[in-house]
């Protein structure tokens, strides 16, 4: 069979003209959407670093400011619910900039027909979680849309925190030779949500890792550990986060697969579904990039907190073009690429 390349026709259009779910998956298409559509029109020195939250100078101090929207199905999952997620996600985004979370806003978009009982459960969960995280909900908004125009309930929260540390973590502080710590076993949030979905309905014991990280971060910073960068692993998973950090710091993140903590349950479920646990979402795990000399002290602090008791060094920052490389247990290497679309289970 020979092919005349002059005659080759592309069976699909080379550019998307509508949004697909892949644009929201945190991978390459999300990045494209951000660059090609959003950042084309919106430019600001505070937006440009694309951190989890922006650092804004206000009268001689720095404030961290962030926002996130939560559109999860199912609303209640093992280990959490959309209310907890809406508070903790924003608290974690603030603490990744080294900020102390203070105030959050709450926007609710509710579909007509949504049970008030369920809404009440969600709002109670928001209140309890805010209390637990020592943040206050100080402003909010509620909108109701026609039946079929939203999937039950969508929540948006924005958060403000104060950056008190003189040298807060930031991607531009990542340096060659730094150690990379992963704070816990990966993939639990994505797996717990996936196993609950109607189309799978797997019986598993996997619970989401959803948990606030701000107290651990505060303790690390107040112990004067010279944290170069922090990033919570959310959409796109460990791989997505490591690739982003390597790319923005123009280094190479070299990760040792054998050292990456993954529970047996997560490994089994992702193997059954043909998914790569490195790309599965988390809501209570973070990467900490720091000088090798501070590693022992940082791990000692992390190991005192239940959420980070499995923290360990999973790799190091080396010189490179801005990519992420995984060293397999067989001592072979492969480059990790951003997810290119929704994670879809394989056929067999």
């Amino acid at each position: 069979m020979t092919v005349d390349f002059e005659q080759v026709l592309c069976p699909i259009s080379s550019h998307d003209d509508v949004i697909t779910l892949a644009h929201g998956s945190g991978g390459r298409k999300s990045a494209q959407l951000l660059n090609d559509v959003i950042l084309k029109h919106l430019r600001s020195e505070y937006l440009a670093p694309l951190q989890d939250s922006a650092s804004i100078p206000v009268r001689g101090t720095s404030l961290a400011f962030t926002t996130d929207s939560y559109v999860i199905d199912p609303l209640f999952f093992p280990g959490g619910d959309i209310g907890q997620l809406a508070v903790i996600g924003t608290v974690n985004d603030l603490s990744m900039s080294g900020a102390r979370p203070l105030y959050i806003s709450l926007g609710l978009i509710i579909e007509e027909g949504f049970p008030i009982d369920t809404l009440s459960r969600i709002v109670k969960s928001i209140a309890d979680t805010a209390n637990r995280c020592d943040v206050q909900v100080v402003t909010g908004d509620t909108k109701v849309v026609n039946a079929g125009k939203a999937d039950g309930i969508f929540i948006n929260t924005a958060g403000v925190g104060s950056i008190d540390h003189p040298r807060p973590p930031a991607t531009d502080r990542i340096a060659v030779g730094d150690a990379i710590i992963c704070s816990g076993d990966i993939g639990r949030h994505g797996c717990s949500v996936m196993a609950q979905r109607e189309e799978y309905d797997f019986a598993t014991s996997i619970k989401s890792d959803l948990a606030p990280l701000h107290l651990i971060v505060e303790e690390l910073l107040s112990a004067n550990i010279d944290i170069h960068c922090l990033r919570d692993l959310t959409r796109g998973g460990l791989a997505g986060c490591a690739i982003e950090l390597a790319s923005s710091s123009r280094t190479r993140f070299e990760l040792q697969q054998e050292h990456i903590p993954v529970s047996t349950e997560v490994r089994s479920l992702s193997s059954i579904l043909g998914l790569d646990e490195l790309y599965i979402a988390n809501e209570g795990c973070m990467l900490t990039v720091l000088p090798q000399t501070d590693v022992n002290q940082a791990l000692a602090i992390m190991h005192r907190h239940p959420q980070t008791k499995l923290a360990c060094v999973i790799g190091e920052v080396t010189e490179g073009p801005g990519d992420c490389v995984l060293v397999t247990p067989f001592n072979t290497k492969r480059k990790l690429e951003q997810l290119t679309g929704e994670m879809l289970p394989r056929i067999c």
Partner: peptide, 12 residues
Amino acid sequence: FGDMLNVPGSSL
């Protein structure tokens, strides 16, 4: 099945 969803057809 999941990974069939992204396979290009003639137009979609």
